[in-house]
Simulated assay, not measured.
Amino acid sequence: MTNGPAGSAAGPRLPLPRRVLVTGADGKIGRAVVDALSDLGVRTTALSTAWTSPSRADRIVTGDATAEDDVADALAGADAVVHLAAIPHRDLGRPYEVYRTNTGATFNVLAQAATAGHVRRAVIASSINAFGVPMNHHAVATAYYPIDEDVPAEIDDWYSLSKYSDELTARMVASHWGLPVIALRYPHVDTWRQLRAHAERVGRAPGTPQLVREGWSYLDLRDAVDVALAALTAPVSGALVVGVSARDTLVDADSGELLDTYAPGVPRRRAITGRTSLIDTTRARTALGFTARYSIHVAADDPDPAPTTAGVTP
Rank of each mutant, 00 (worst) to 15 (best):
P5K: 03
P5E: 00
G7W: 06
G7I: 02
A10G: 07
G11A: 06
G11H: 09
G11M: 04
P12D: 02
P12L: 00
R13K: 13
L14P: 01
P15V: 04
P15R: 11
L16V: 05
P17A: 14
P17N: 12
R18W: 06
R19M: 03
V20P: 06
V20H: 11
L21R: 11
L21K: 11
V22F: 08
V22Y: 09
T23M: 02
A25N: 09
D26W: 08
D26F: 13
D26P: 07
D26R: 09
K28N: 13
I29C: 04
I29V: 14
I29R: 04
G30A: 07
G30L: 08
G30I: 01
R31T: 05
R31S: 05
A32K: 08
V33A: 04
D35H: 15
D35P: 06
A36C: 14
A36D: 08
L37Y: 14
L37G: 06
S38H: 12
S38A: 14
S38R: 15
D39F: 13
D39C: 12
D39L: 15
L40Y: 06
G41P: 10
G41K: 14
G41Q: 11
V42K: 10
V42R: 09
T45M: 02
A46V: 00
A46R: 06
A46I: 05
A46K: 08
A46S: 12
L47P: 05
L47F: 15
L47Q: 00
T49R: 15
T49S: 10
A50D: 15
A50V: 14
W51F: 15
W51K: 10
T52P: 08
T52G: 15
S53V: 11
S55L: 10
R56N: 10
R56E: 13
A57K: 07
A57G: 11
A57F: 05
A57M: 08
D58T: 09
I60C: 11
V61G: 05
V61N: 02
T62W: 06
A65E: 03
A65N: 05
A65W: 01
A65M: 03
T66K: 07
T66P: 05
A67Y: 01
E68V: 12
E68Q: 12
D69W: 04
V71E: 01
V71N: 09
A72N: 11
D73K: 08
A74Q: 02
A74I: 07
L75F: 13
G77L: 03
D79N: 12
D79S: 11
A80V: 05
A80T: 01
A80N: 05
V81G: 09
V81S: 08
V82D: 04
V82I: 14
H83K: 15
H83Y: 13
H83E: 10
L84N: 02
L84G: 08
I87V: 08
I87G: 00
P88C: 08
P88T: 02
H89C: 01
H89G: 09
R90W: 13
R90Q: 15
D91T: 12
D91I: 03
L92C: 04
G93R: 00
G93T: 07
R94M: 06
R94G: 13
R94Y: 04
P95N: 01
Y96M: 12
E97G: 06
V98G: 04
Y99I: 00
Y99M: 01
Y99L: 15
Y99T: 01
R100P: 03
T101I: 03
